[in-house]
Design a protein around this nucleic acid. Structure first.
Lengths: 237, 237
DNA sequence: TAGTGGTCTAGACCACTAC
DNA sequence: TAGTGGTCTAGACCACTAC
């Protein structure tokens, strides 16, 4: 762990313990630099981390104040979300399992070609998977992945966590994801598998996942039961 | 504008013009430092900006590659969103107007007290406002703001952009917003004002807006017609 | 093992705020 | 005008990658 991360951890703890109360000023950067035997640039990097978490706000000319923000929000943040539902639910000690409704290899239609930046002759997996949390239907996923990026995908893997396999077995490195969140009416497919009413809406998360080398790994639409899931976003500046 | 922002602008232009094509390596930091007569730390800050935009990916040991990401996504990003719908729609040359359905001053119930971190004796505005874009119903907003932060709010201001007033007249400085996005069934209130069907869902954005001094300015629930609006998020790392 | 980006420093100058 | 944070530098050392 870097020095500025360690310093940020210490300051975060002090805020938690009310040693730096809400609305109070943090000691000025040069004092913190002295205390931690660090340069001011390093202190700045630590404070930048806390700023990005929404814990403090630094203003040129008038110091750095502690903001009024509950800590719990961090866990609801989407930042870690594409490590998969399994990882997310593990923290809360809830069980996740999956039904494979479709597992097919096909050629992409134009929409999928555009989303994944591939040609009509590059085969893709087409997966429909129902995810249950604590044995309750939760999300119906429609996933497309280029076959050449994920050879040897099997039903067994799909029943567990795809992301564990991609990360640990194939050693793929994720750069990030672009998501579009919208509400939709449920269709009969949703109603069947998510066990929801005709009048129930759906929270759909459309997602494109990027690898560190710039390749597009996944295009998916995750259809969430409206009553079990929200999506939180923290915007700064 | 800072030097590192200027350098980021130049590199961004080069990527746009394909001088640094997708999947190619950027020149190494020390070369860029030489070219721009800057230190490597300053180049690093410029590249960090581009990384946060999702344009490049820097990896210790193997250089910085140009990612495959359309530029248009930046405009869809939520980062600028809480400057208000008026500003967002102005870019697209679409008209925005508002009906004031309720404009009241009241004492906050427990839920609002918790969201705004105020006591039961601190008065709040309670506003319900219907926003139309190009004369079509778009969003039904339920807004709560502490009166002491926004004195002299009037119906006239509500009919225009609240944010213009807060920024330009009251000189309030925004630090950020925390949002929760979810799907919901429409209720009869939504159906009346948003002119939607009984079976239409709603995309609800629940929001808390923070000022730079740490005060909480606004708690609101914006109920969007499901067929006109989505919400985009870019996650990195 | 060579080459890359990540971090860190000490000191400097500047922009902005609050009085 | 005093005091704060923001930026910038030149140089150093290190971690990681790819061969």
């Amino acid at each position: 762990m870097t020095k500025y991360e360690q310093i940020a951890d210490i300051i975060r703890e002090r805020i938690k313990k009310n040693e730096y109360p809400v609305h109070s000023q943090l000691p000025k950067q040069s004092l913190l630099a002295e205390e931690f035997s660090a340069s001011r640039e390093t202190i700045k990097k630590a404070i930048d981390l806390l700023t990005m978490e929404g814990l403090v706000y630094a203003q040129r000319g008038s110091g750095t104040v502690v903001l009024n923000r509950p800590f719990s929000q961090k866990e609801a943040s989407p930042a870690t979300e594409y490590y998969g539902l399994t990882a997310l639910m593990e923290k809360e000690e809830r069980s996740v399992d999956s039904d494979i409704i479709l597992f097919d290899v096909t050629f992409p239609n134009q929409h999928i070609q555009e989303k994944l930046h591939i040609t009509a002759t590059q085969a893709v997996y087409h997966i429909i998977r129902l995810r249950r949390v604590d044995n309750q239907p939760y999300i119906l996923e429609h996933i497309y992945m280029p076959v050449h990026l994920v050879p040897h995908l099997t039903e067994d893997i799909l029943k567990q966590s795809i992301y564990d396999y991609l990360k640990n077995e194939l050693d793929l490195k994720f750069a990030g994801a672009y998501r579009m969140i919208q509400a939709d009416k449920s269709d009969s497919f949703d109603q069947t598998y998510l066990n929801c009413e005709v009048t129930d809406p759906i929270l759909e998360v459309e997602q494109v996942v990027y690898l560190k080398n710039g390749q597009l790994l996944e295009y998916s639409r995750s259809r969430n039961r409206f009553d079990v899931r929200g999506y939180s976003v923290l915007d700064l500046q």
